[in-house]
Each structure stands twice: as C-alpha cells, then as structure tokens.
Simulated assay, not measured.
Amino acid sequence: MLNDFWETAPPAYKYAVFGGMALTTIGIIIIVVGAVTSTPQLTFVGLPFIGVGLLAHMTSLGIRGRSVRKALKEAEKRSNGR
C-alpha cells in the first residue's frame, strides 16, 4: 500500500522542514524591514537566518533520503522472503 510520505515521515524530518521554513521566513522579514527602514545593519542580520534555514532544508533532504532508502530496503527484504 502506498502512503503519502508526509504521513509516514519521521518527526525529525518534519521538525527540520518547518524549522527551515520558519528561519528563512524570519530572515526575509528582517531583511525587508531593514530595507524599508534604510538600516543596512539590519539587512545583514537577516542573512544568517536565511543561511541556517537553508541548511535545515538540506538536512531535511538527507533525513528524507535515509528514511526512503531504509523503507525500500525493508520492502525488498519482505518481497525476497516470500
């Protein structure tokens, strides 16, 4: 039976995805506020938030790939055992 990946995804994947989205959003908001208020220091403060958010997304891709490989390996063992 095929399941939607989000239903069977590990909690670490979900936390990494939502954490990455939140950090990226915070960084974008800080940069926009810095640009609107003409505060160059504030625009540079937002860049690390975006960077860490992107790293969290990359981490979530690694977690997802490991989970999928593990599930495929288990499915292959089940099919070979029959």
Rank of each mutant, 00 (worst) to 15 (best):
A9L: 07
T24D: 10
F5R: 02
L72V: 06
R66T: 05
I30P: 01
G65R: 09
I28K: 03
L47D: 05
P11I: 13
S79G: 10
P10I: 13
A9K: 04
F18I: 15
Y15D: 04
V17L: 01
G51S: 07
S79H: 14
P11T: 13
E74L: 14
E7K: 11
M21K: 12
K14Q: 07
A75E: 12
H57V: 10
G65C: 09
G27I: 01
S38W: 06
L47Y: 09
I28V: 07
G20I: 05
G53F: 00
I30Q: 04
F5G: 00
G53R: 02
V45P: 01
V45S: 02
G65A: 10
F49E: 02
F44R: 11
V36H: 00
G51C: 07
A9E: 03
R78E: 15
L61M: 05
L2C: 14
V52L: 03
S79L: 14
G34D: 00
V36R: 00
E76W: 14
A71C: 09
G53H: 00
T59H: 06
S38G: 07
I31K: 06
F5P: 01
Q41C: 08
L23M: 10
G62W: 04
R78N: 12
H57C: 10
Q41K: 13
M1Y: 09
G34M: 00
F44Y: 12
R69D: 11
R78S: 14
H57Q: 13
T8S: 12
I29E: 06
P48I: 02
K14W: 06
E7I: 14
Y13K: 11
R64E: 07
M21Y: 15
Q41L: 15
A22Y: 11
R66Y: 09
I50Y: 04
L23H: 06
Y15I: 09
A56P: 03
E76T: 14
T43P: 00
E7C: 11
A56I: 06
I63Y: 03
S67C: 04
G53V: 00
Q41G: 15
P11Q: 13
A56T: 09
E76R: 15
G46N: 03
L47I: 09
A71W: 08
Y13M: 13
D4C: 08
I50F: 03
P48E: 02
I28H: 04
L2S: 15
